[in-house]
Amino acid sequence: MPAANPSADHQPTDEVALEAILSELNRRLDPVARRRPNVGVLDCVPRVRCADGFSVSVQAGRGNYCAPRDDDGPWYDVELGFPSERVEALIPFAEEEDRPTKTVYGWVPLTLVAEVILAHGGFAQTEAA
């Protein structure tokens, strides 16, 4: 997670980086791009991989713990699953707190997801749009 009280020098850069990450997350979650032709269901979003090796599943749709809980979005809360390591900021959302890398996390604010990705160096180079 970013520092609790970032210095004024770094705050604008963090805000720009967070906005870029949110934009990319929304692009990946786009229901139009994920909707299967002739079926109507959404494909899963590929696992997010970060620059430092951290990874996590980020999903949204009517079958996920997200808000709104539909297949249309835009979503402000999403479902995370099976992060590669424990992330303290996510524990309150864990279905099984004692198994942090083997559980799902419901209704996680998309802004918090962006902060976690930023804290792990942003998207991996192979993940960038």
Rank of each mutant, 00 (worst) to 15 (best):
E24L: 05
E85F: 05
P37S: 14
N64R: 11
N64K: 09
H120M: 03
N38G: 09
Y105C: 03
A8L: 13
L118W: 06
F123C: 02
C44Q: 14
E88P: 04
V104T: 15
E19F: 12
V48E: 01
S55H: 13
S23W: 09
D72Q: 14
V45L: 05
S23G: 15
W107F: 14
Q125W: 13
Y105P: 03
P46T: 05
T103P: 04
R36A: 14
V104A: 13
R49D: 09
E19C: 12
A114T: 02
Q59H: 02
E85T: 12
D52F: 06
D30I: 01
E88R: 08
D14A: 13
E127W: 07
R86D: 07
I117N: 03
H10R: 15
P74I: 00
A67R: 11
V104R: 15
E24F: 00
G63N: 13
Q59W: 00
Y76V: 11
W75I: 00
M1K: 09
G121L: 03
S7N: 12
D71H: 05
V45E: 05
Y105I: 02
Y65E: 07
A128F: 13
R47V: 10
A129G: 14
A114V: 01
G61H: 06
S84N: 05
L42E: 02
G122Y: 03
R36E: 13
R99Y: 08
L90P: 02
V32G: 05
A3H: 14
A124P: 10
N26C: 10
G81P: 01
A17M: 11
H10C: 12
Q59E: 07
A3S: 15
S23Y: 10
P31N: 07
L29Y: 01
I21A: 02
N64L: 05
Y76T: 12
R27E: 03
E88L: 11
T103A: 05
A119Y: 01
N5F: 13
W107V: 06
V48T: 04
R47L: 07
Q125V: 15
G122S: 06
P37E: 15
A119G: 15
D70L: 04
P6K: 06
C50Y: 04
A8K: 09
G73C: 03
T126A: 15
A94L: 02
L42V: 07
L80N: 00
H10Y: 14
A33S: 11
